[in-house]
């Protein structure tokens, strides 16, 4: 494929990589929302979020095996839907517990304390999964092998989209729509935005700030769980150390889109996915992760408000 990159099949290869990039980018976007919401509401980088994503993939893995082998559910669609819902619930519960134990007591304290606590939690999660589930890769048989050829160029090089990719696109779009509705139209969303503006005032006006913050964490976790389930389905393998790199990339996405901005998180995720795959295709596969980190650095230095974020004015 490498040989063809620049020449004959340029258009086809490019379109294929864009399709792949959007797929990965959707996952990054789903994770990024968790970062951006938590940062928006309490100004904290939830360092453990990447590992929460990894744990959710493990929940999905375990229940997928359980449903197919123990309960003998044959319908892949049914199994996937069930697994996704279970993973969302359990991951939400996990993050709720983490927030109560490790973050809530530190609210309003020393600013570094929650960050250190979150780093500690990230270490705990990945090492706990390593101990409980073992350090090896966990491969599953492919959920589906269905691939559709979109078009075949004059040279015969096909541009494909797999059913898995379609599932990821559709699920992501549906969930984002539902999520958008929650944030824009419901009382919870209003409470969230109020806490974002001024926590003390919101609490004086009768918003249950603690509960709102907890729910923010839980919603972020549920979206990460969707990403975790889709990640498992797409790659067919997960390992305990899978939290860190997607976590940092999703954070990059959140920053690129403008931290605190929800559409920004999704946009950032798609861009990171695209840049990463195209970089891998046209520049250097070895330095793919370097590209993602470099974008993070460049964006933060030259455009800290991101694409859709609000600029910060220094108060003197």
């Amino acid at each position: 494929m490498r040989v063809t990159a620049g020449g004959l099949y340029f258009m086809e290869v490019f379109v294929q990589q864009v399709i792949n990039g959007i797929t990965i980018g959707s996952l990054y976007g789903l994770i990024a929302i968790g970062y951006t919401m938590v940062f928006g509401i309490i100004g904290m980088v939830n360092f453990a979020h990447g590992d929460v994503f990894m744990v959710s993939a493990f929940f999905a893995l375990i229940f997928l095996l359980l449903l197919t082998s123990w309960f003998g559910i044959a319908s892949v669609t049914l199994a996937l839907i069930l697994v996704m819902v279970i993973s969302m619930v359990l991951t939400g519960l996990l993050v709720w517990a983490i927030e109560r134990i490790a973050y809530a007591p530190l609210r309003g304290s020393f600013r570094l304390a929650p960050l250190i606590s979150a780093i500690g939690m990230s270490i705990v999660l990945s090492n706990f999964v390593q101990v409980a589930q073992g350090p090896r890769n966990k491969p599953i048989p492919p959920v589906t092998r269905e691939v559709y050829t979109l078009w075949q160029g004059p040279t015969g090089y096909p541009v494909n989209i797999s059913l898995k990719q379609i599932i990821i696109w559709v699920v992501t779009a549906l969930l984002l729509a539902a999520f958008w509705y929650v944030v824009q139209k419901t009382a919870l969303g209003r409470a969230q935005r109020a806490c974002e503006q001024d926590r003390k005032m919101a609490s004086l006006l009768g918003v249950n700030v603690d509960r709102t913050i907890s729910l923010t964490f839980v919603i972020g976790a549920a979206l990460a769980a969707v990403a975790g389930t889709l990640f498992l389905m797409y790659y067919g393998v997960v390992v305990f150390s899978d939290g860190f790199t997607p976590g940092v990339k999703a954070f990059t996405a959140a920053v690129l889109g403008g931290i605190g901005s929800l559409p920004g998180a999704v946009l950032g995720g798609l861009l990171i996915g695209l840049i990463e795959t195209l970089w891998g295709q046209y520049v250097s596969a070895d330095y793919q992760n370097v590209a993602a980190f470099s974008i993070l650095v460049i964006v933060l230095i030259f455009m800290p408000q991101g694409l859709l974020g609000r600029p910060e004015v220094e108060k003197v």
């Binding site: 490790a102 007591p105 929650p114 606590s117 500690g120 939690m121 270490i123 999660l125």
Partner: peptide, 10 residues
């Protein structure tokens, strides 16, 4: 180590 980090911070 991670648990100790969390506990000491809290």
């Amino acid at each position: 180590f991670g648990l100790a980090m969390v506990i000491i911070m809290v």
